[in-house]
Design a protein around this nucleic acid. Structure first.
Lengths: 192, 192
DNA sequence: TGCCTTACCTAACGTTAGTTAGCGATGAAG
DNA sequence: CTTCATCGCTAACTAACGTTAGGTAAGGCA
């Protein structure tokens, strides 16, 4: 039972944090969502930062594992990119609140967790860089500044969190496919 | 003299806010940067939020004016997009700290400024939507979900703030051009 | 000389933050 | 029936926040 309520608290915390920001989300406000007083929360969690840490590192793991799988299973660069983006969008859309914390609130981590987290982020970028590099070597992707392409791609797929609505007209897979098409082929009509 | 120091204070504030976040940046810390005590700041500024307001609305104006110009002067959709992105990157890279506040800290605005600001942001997006819509009607751009394309493009050009370094190897114009090429033509090699 | 403004100071206010201490009720286990 | 962990509570602490009040030294100007 304890573990269940703990998860409820964390979930609600993530929801509030996404809505108002980590610093603006107080323990008293969080407690109110459960008709409790703030100190009672500490029967379930160790501290406010514990929520932040668990979420940041938990999501980092999810993203990294999914990416490593792609790099292991698929060989073709284009296929790799398509699957990586599909996985990323899938994780992002099914963990909107947690992903927001992962993307934008990690700066509130205290040391040494902050440094550790930055390193994980770096590793994730590295994975994408590899994929693009693969596609380039295969002659399928243009010769491009790989760092540049990586960052641009990551920005596009992360921005999805800003406008995705679970009840919208596109489901995660459709978003991922459309995004991949856009990234691969751009906006311009192909010359005939 | 007073106006000069006021600007120095605001500039330093923006620098600190970009580094640590609006809420994490305190008046005492800001004052320390000038070897002053916190209350002395109030001889130069009215409040902490004044800095936020001035920056958010000031930057919004810059971006919107630049975009309106593009929509007035150029006719071709592709040219419009190229110039809009060039202007955007130019403003962004020459106001890194202020742009960060504009992009990520506006949520700390209090009402009614918050609503007003959101409306301005909306208008800026609208401008990009128009451009893409123009290119589509001309038959130069693919038939695409315009909202989707707009958001993806804006995310890519805004993400530049995350990795741009003034002493890096690409200057703003190069970044803008490369970004535009990427957005227009994508990552894949053109079929022969 | 006398005065007013500028720009700093110290002291302190009121609020809010995260958290701890310690107590009481409940309910399952031995 | 007793025991003991669970999970709430109130009270309160420390630290930090933005800001105000009120005072003082310096410099331009009548």
């Amino acid at each position: 039972m304890k573990v269940a309520k703990r998860q409820l608290i964390i979930d609600k915390a993530l929801e509030l944090i996404r809505k108002n920001g980590y610093r603006a989300t107080g323990m008293r406000e969080l407690a109110k969502a459960f008709s409790m007083e703030a100190p009672s929360l500490y029967n379930h969690i160790k501290s406010k930062e514990e929520i932040l840490q668990e979420t940041c590192f938990g999501m980092a793991n999810k993203f990294i594992i999914a990416l490593d799988e792609v790099n292991d299973i698929y060989f073709n660069g284009e296929e790799k990119l398509r699957m990586a983006i599909r996985n990323h969008i899938e994780i992002l859309t099914s963990n909107l609140n947690a992903t927001h914390v992962f993307l934008y609130e990690w700066q509130n981590l205290s040391e040494p967790h902050l440094s550790k987290f930055v390193e994980l982020r770096h590793r994730y970028q590295e994975g994408y860089r590899e994929i693009i590099s693969t596609g380039e070597k295969e002659g399928v992707f243009k010769e491009s500044d790989i760092k540049f392409a990586t960052l641009t791609i990551l920005s596009a797929i992360n921005w999805v969190i800003e406008w995705y609505r679970p009840d919208g007209k596109m489901n995660p897979k459709e978003i991922a496919d459309k995004l991949t098409d856009f990234i691969l082929s751009g906006l311009k009509k192909e010359k005939i």
